[in-house]
Amino acid sequence: MSALLTVKDLARRYPVTGARGERRQLHAVDGVSFSLDAHRTLGIVGESGCGKSTTAKLVLGLLAASSGRIDFAGEPVTALRDARWRAMRRSMQMVPQDPLAALDRRLTVGEQVVEPLQIHNLEAGPGPRQERALSLFEAVGLRPDLFHRYPHELSGGQRQRVVLARALVLDPRLVVCDEPISALDVSVAAQVINLLQDLQGRFGMAYLFISHDLKVVRQIADEVAVMYLGRIVEQGPPDALFHAAAHPYTEALVSAVPTPWRRMRERIVLSGDPPNPVDRPSGCAFHPRCPRAMALCATEAPALRRVADGRLAACHLAPAVDGPVAVAA
């Protein structure tokens, strides 16, 4: 079975003007490859500016890629906004971070869940459309009497459920979630995480789940990719990654997560900030902050390759199992 979504050597560059007026390139996403099967969840984690949200927009065809290739259900994804793009967008939906910003405050939430059906001219007539929207209300756990309310009348958790209902009303095969629960409180976030898992079990769509919160990603993802400065530095099952990181950046990221329980934990505090993507350091981009950098790291960029236990890592210190791989499962 071929994967639902395949991304190969994806890159997005922006031209910028340097301090002295010189033309430079900002590499927001710099050669990312992964694939995602139906019914699976790939988590992408990393700090701000690592390119995780840009990757999401490229996958959805909202941004044009500078180079590389994206295939969705066997067809290439473009950002041409033509009829073919529109038809494809029906099967790939997005759940953004801030539900209040994503909803139109002058339309009732019911109208907003019906709207995608009108746009794609599905479920002929207002009656069947409302019925379909109400069935989604039920699926995401919203009371039907909220159908005629406006976004400001709902709580944050309810709004995120409306956004989910709107994304799912077209029966998508891929849902890209960009920090879907960062704006929610702890007790409500747990409700939405459980809901996302239940909906996947019921409708079988794939999630591309973008988050900076490792704990949430561990909870929901089948596979995790850690990004640093536009590239994937490690990829594998969440428990393998978070308990025995192969890449020093993953290790630092995991140790930086404050958890209430680990009193005796050793914390690796990285010095400095992530570097500017315009001035990508030579060799491995992480070497100026890496506690284990060697001379080789400053000169040669490590390739993302298979290391022990089937994981992928881009680090000279992680022993490779066999040659570089292009696309991971």
């Binding site: 709580s155 958790g157 409180d185 702890v186 976030a189 995480i193 459980n194 308990h243 680990r262």
Partner: peptide, 24 residues
């Protein structure tokens, strides 16, 4: 107790979260 039970975790078995029902 509800707050502690609703937290996803980095260690231990991956179990379904126990959210606090309802809203503030």
């Amino acid at each position: 107790r509800g707050l502690l039970a609703a937290l996803p975790e980095l260690d231990g078995p991956r179990l379904r979260l126990t959210p606090v029902p309802g809203t503030v």
